[in-house]
Design a binder for these strands. Structure first.
Lengths: 187, 187
DNA sequence: AATTAATGTTTACAAAGTAAACATTTTCCT
DNA sequence: AGGAAAATGTTTACTTTGTAAACATTAATT
């Protein structure tokens, strides 16, 4: 065991990611992260300014994952939407950090803000391709509606996971995301 | 100043509500709440079990407000949706507690869970009235889509508030909620 | 009036974020 | 190579916050 680690920052982010994925951000605390990375409580602060910066790292990592799987879905609305929804259901607590409203002041992290905008711009571009003659306003309206429908759906599906599945019809939606999206928003 | 207060619980919830509305739940801490209510740090614990219960009280209060304004909007989709959206924009941090996904385990508070279900059932009922011949599945699909579109929109509009208003077209949506809703989901 | 329940206060502790001072490596410059 | 400077870890220590426990006072009940 050496005094200097190779990639402690990566290691710390990795550990925090795992805790957050398995248990939620509330359960991420610096001392536990340090212990799991086998360093002292405050080694962290040589690599990141504070806990909020750690949160930002998780958000960045989330966008990396979601973007990686995105490929050329811009012209395949329902596939694009389903991709986001599946991410939200697979990494609910990371998703909260990325798209929830409470916490992180995203404007403090311009690169992350750019990732967010990039995602939304993808939708706008897709809508533009789909309705090339629409006005900017109508494009925006459609894009916002798509975005809202997708992200709003994650909330319902997650809640239905918690409540001992009150309704089978929600299960149908969950298992048929693309079809649901085509029937509703994506047309 | 008497030893026993009349309605300390109400007072404490009120104080917490004000802090949460003005600054976010993160800024609500027991000592500050106690100070503003002019009681000792721990008087609180004679009235509520813990801080989570305080959060639940705010959620309950949020539902009371949102339900009060709801009236007979069940058969007026865009009005109903706009009502929720306006609440979300007026009380963003309360809204997070009510409809966000991170925090409160709502199933620990069956009465709150019931308030939530009541709201969603209102949508289902509205859809049923609107399309009386639709199958249960189709009703559910439409209701979920309405719910998701409304709650998802709050997220975008809130974010656009933060970012020094990147786009005027979002402003249009915000100022014309009903029309936007009619154009998209509510038809 | 005396006992008990309800409600406040004081004291105290533990968890968690992080600053400061100190220690060890590594890097880099001559 | 040798030694200063930068980077990275550790130890200590302080602060904030939630809340438990013991004690005090007022209100309710018999």
């Amino acid at each position: 065991m050496s005094y200097h680690k190779k990639n402690l920052k990566e290691k710390l982010v990795e550990v925090a990611w795992n805790i957050c994925v398995a248990e939620s951000w509330e359960k991420v605390n610096m001392r536990e992260v340090a212990k799991k990375a086998r360093v002292s409580n405050t080694a962290f602060y040589r690599h990141l300014k504070n806990k909020n910066d750690l949160k930002a790292e998780l958000v960045r990592r989330g966008f990396e994952i979601i973007n990686k799987g995105k490929k050329n879905l811009t012209n395949n609305f329902s596939g694009y939407g389903a991709h986001y929804i599946r991410f939200g259901l697979k990494y609910p607590y990371i998703y909260d950090l990325m798209f929830g409203n409470t916490d992180l002041d995203i404007s403090l992290y311009p690169d992350i803000e750019a990732l967010f905008d990039e995602a939304f711009d993808g939708v706008i571009q897709g809508v533009k391709n789909f309705m090339p003659n629409a006005s900017d306003k109508d494009v925006m309206i459609k894009a916002v509606n798509i975005w809202a429908s997708v992200h709003g759906l994650v909330g319902i599906l997650r809640r239905s996971d918690l409540q001992a599945n009150k309704d089978k019809r929600l299960k149908w939606i969950k298992n048929n995301l693309e079809e649901y999206l085509k029937m509703t928003t994506f047309k």
